[in-house]
Design a protein around this nucleic acid. Structure first.
Lengths: 190, 190
DNA sequence: CTAGAATCGGACTGGAGAGTCCGATTCAAC
DNA sequence: GTTGAATCGGACTCTCCAGTCCGATTCTAG
């Protein structure tokens, strides 16, 4: 579904598009989804017209940012799964998702509030992520590393919640590590 | 500090003010802080002029809602502290704060983003809450019920984060209970 | 190099929502 | 009941921002 069926963009157009995505990712992540589109455009060195040609809606831009991030996380998670034991992979992925989700909560919230619902592309990549997490969880439970009564919804909620915890905590590596210890201890069987 | 130094409000004015606070609490909690002030006013059966007389700013209204909630929680927490053993009180209060914080995250976020910083009244009641939590934590740690390396900032972050977890999870009592088990297990010493 | 198509830029529009203003209304003191 | 002060209501203004439009610019095929 994510093939390259689009006709090749003109050189400058492709450059602008990529630049917009990068800048938007950075700005939205650090300052929240409320930043005006015009500011994103200026930071990327283009006019708003250009921005809206590439992303017909602010929501579309947000969505593109989130999808790209999800895809990155999914890919890295796949690597981890292939390379490590179930238990180790599970906890490593938990860390990965939490670290990469910084500030993402606001996006999805905005998206859900704005559009009728999240769009097709997002549903697609988030479904892939869910499937991966479900596998990961099942494997870890089979290996006895995670309490067996935990479901996928709880795991996802915990991922989001731990992300919120970290956001609240700020940059204090030792404290962040202690949070991981608490959550991981809680996840293991009694 | 929270004495009654204000001159007595006229009967209708007092009624309107109370009604506005109630409605605002309800509406903001269920639909987020983005709801237009006009809608709050209409739901309360008054004009926007009235709303803005009592709360000169939307931010002020949000703040009043949050302060009131904090005060409620603080009072109930005090009861629990007086009535139970340290360990029991600690976990009961954790539950209480998480349950009562549903949807509050967005408020504080909005507040922090809007005003220069949170206002005096909020700082006051949140300082009271912090002090209470610090006591609670220290007592529970002395009783050996909570891992000793946990600080107040981590506790607060966990409260917020667990609130986010619950919000994400929705209304599924069994799942919510499992989340509490995970977090509480993680909080206890190894 | 040239022409024509794709892309750009940013002034402009429309709409939404916060906060103001003042004539109309309601309260309460006498 | 009367009267003046407090309060109300909601039309109105002002600001901010998403998204449009079109003349100007830049790319690329030949």
């Amino acid at each position: 579904m994510s093939g390259a069926q689009e006709k090749p963009l003109r050189a400058d157009a492709a450059r602008n598009r990529a630049r917009l995505l990068d800048i938007a990712t950075q700005v939205f992540t650090t300052r929240g989804a409320g930043v005006p589109t015009e500011e994103i455009a200026r930071a990327a060195g283009v006019g708003v017209g250009t921005l809206f040609r590439h992303f017909p809606t602010k929501e579309a831009l947000l969505e593109a940012v989130v999808v790209r991030r999800l895809e990155t996380i999914t890919a890295r998670t796949a690597e981890l799964i292939a390379r490590a034991e179930p238990a180790e992979a599970f906890f490593a992925c938990f860390r990965l998702v939490v670290e990469q989700s910084a500030g993402k909560g606001e996006f999805t919230r905005t998206l859900a509030a704005a559009g009728v619902d999240v769009h097709a592309s997002l549903q697609e990549s988030s479904a892939a992520m869910r499937a991966q997490l479900a596998d990961l969880l099942a494997e870890a439970q089979r290996a006895g590393a995670v309490r067996p009564d935990l479901g996928l919804p709880e795991l996802i909620a915990l991922l989001v919640g731990t992300g919120a915890t970290m956001e609240q905590l700020g940059d204090e590596p030792a404290a962040r590590e202690r949070i991981f210890e608490v959550v991981f201890d809680g996840l293991r069987p009694r």
